[in-house]
Design a protein around this nucleic acid. Sequence first.
DNA 1: TTGAAAGCGATACCAG
DNA 2: CTGGTATCGCTTTCAA
Lengths: 349, 349
Amino acid sequence: MPYVMVQIPNTPTPTKSPAPRSVPTSADVARLAGVSRATVSYVLNNTSAVRISEPTRRRVHEAAKELGYVPHAAARSLRAGHSRMVLMPTLPVPAGPLYSQFVHDFQGALSRLDYTVVQYGATGLRGDDAARAWAELRPVAVLVPGPGIGPEGVAVLKRSGARAVVTLSAVPVEGAHALLLDHAGVGRSAAEHLYARGRRRIGVVVPAEPGLEIFSGPRLNGAREALHGTDAAVTELSLAYTEESAAALAARWTDLGLDAVFTYNDEYGMLLMRALQDEGIRVPEDTAVIGADDLMLGRLLRPRLSTVRIALPSGRDLASIVDRAVRNPSAEPESHDLYGASIVHRESS
Amino acid sequence: MPYVMVQIPNTPTPTKSPAPRSVPTSADVARLAGVSRATVSYVLNNTSAVRISEPTRRRVHEAAKELGYVPHAAARSLRAGHSRMVLMPTLPVPAGPLYSQFVHDFQGALSRLDYTVVQYGATGLRGDDAARAWAELRPVAVLVPGPGIGPEGVAVLKRSGARAVVTLSAVPVEGAHALLLDHAGVGRSAAEHLYARGRRRIGVVVPAEPGLEIFSGPRLNGAREALHGTDAAVTELSLAYTEESAAALAARWTDLGLDAVFTYNDEYGMLLMRALQDEGIRVPEDTAVIGADDLMLGRLLRPRLSTVRIALPSGRDLASIVDRAVRNPSAEPESHDLYGASIVHRESS
DNA sequence: TTGAAAGCGATACCAG
DNA sequence: CTGGTATCGCTTTCAA
């Protein structure tokens, strides 16, 4: 810990020590193999347009291996003028199981199409600044989860060479392909379901964790909307993902006088349902509970948790949408409605 | 579009249509502002070494805005000879809650130190090829989760300019900083706990999902190790993360004659515990159950799930390890033992 | 079959 | 204060 001894300037100055052994370039390989850089490039890329003699190939390969040569992606794509990188900004919140699975599938599908998926941790930047930061990488396509981009952002990306911008969100964005997640529909379905089952005083959980508003807002509004003009009332319930918060909420449950609750998703549902049960409130007799996202854990609860399923696109489908858009960038951006806010009725409601 | 006339090879050739409006460069900005590229660079980077007149600054900024100019990261880092990118290969499996949280924290901490975290989806490449693919991006540091790299891989990365390679895994790798996750210790602790509570016929769940062997293997072996030479026996139990698989396993539970089970982690634990209960097997009376990872859901089960907690490093700690290593690349790689395979004893065991 | 050289976009030195 | 220009590493014509 020598750091306590010296003044550290407040700007992060990287130590500019000369690299002990500098990074080998194709020129180094050429020198060692006794050929020109062009030849090195031909050999290493298996260029079919030119034929290189077998002894030369071997010499080049050996030299490359000996030096531990690795081509410089930036230089290559600078020269080429394009890359096959698909950029995906990371979510501002830790990914849930649904999203993790989706990303995994999407990556697999795209790499089978010879793209490279990069999740880019651009925290702290908002709106157009974020889009500019993404554009600096000159990705061939960008998949934006959530409402992190506006029409100007899309324009910036396209001007910077992105051949496809796809949003995965509740509202379409001018110029971008849209996968429309109907969060409001989730809230609406949940509310309608509870109403149909005779519930009239309906709570809606809104996670206290920051960053989730973009999902929880539409879900809450959807529920409000569905019950507008009926004799049912909606109560917004803030809940953090901790046992204490759930216990506190459960403790004032009787005072709240609710006979049903839509818990934002299955995880919060599990949390709250357990707290209610511990408080002696019977589910579903006293209070009906419904979650969302149809996670495995809902099926394992007792009573089994009713849920609203929202279908994310399969990774393969989305990958092919991206690929098509990249191959034909002039095509009009499409909107794909991801219907499927469908009720999975189990025992808790 | 003369391209329709020629044979398109079956390799995915991107349509080489001339971009309708090509990407603006700093030269374009310079032209529009009536200054040289150098001046543009000075203005846009607020270079303090030179002073540019206010009118000129304005003209440059206006030109840049009008063209929608965004600098080209590849060109910049090619010139600069370094970047502040920290590369993190994505896991070969969808991330669990523990890991998602960890990545999120780590990203946040590193961006506060002015690094950019990139999760790179390099599927399909194994061992040294993967390391080479990562090295092409010339990251300043690489964090490898799991045993995805060997000493040669580390060497390749370092030769390519990576100033720090950190592995998050069970075994240290020559030349790399190591965060040692004691998976075997998890299995050992679980087994010792069950043994101490009088259990002798102990099952160990091994997830059927591919890609998890790297975690489940050591956990199983740790359990075996702990009970070696005692009067207890270990039975390996393959289990897929589906209700059917769990039900099938539970159905033959009596035949198996087990009085305890270590379920790999809490999620599999929840799954199996529920299946056992549905089968009429009492937990913990007939069979004790213990999971791992100390997920929230374990606390919400009834009986509450005992678990083995394994402490991942905090994102901030790890970020500062990386930062230190980057600033002082010549320092010997450190190994940090992440002890903390500690038993959280609840009701299921 | 191989080599010389142009140029991708941005930056920083050195003159003017 | 501003402009030329060399340079980063690589690919790809064009010549030899």
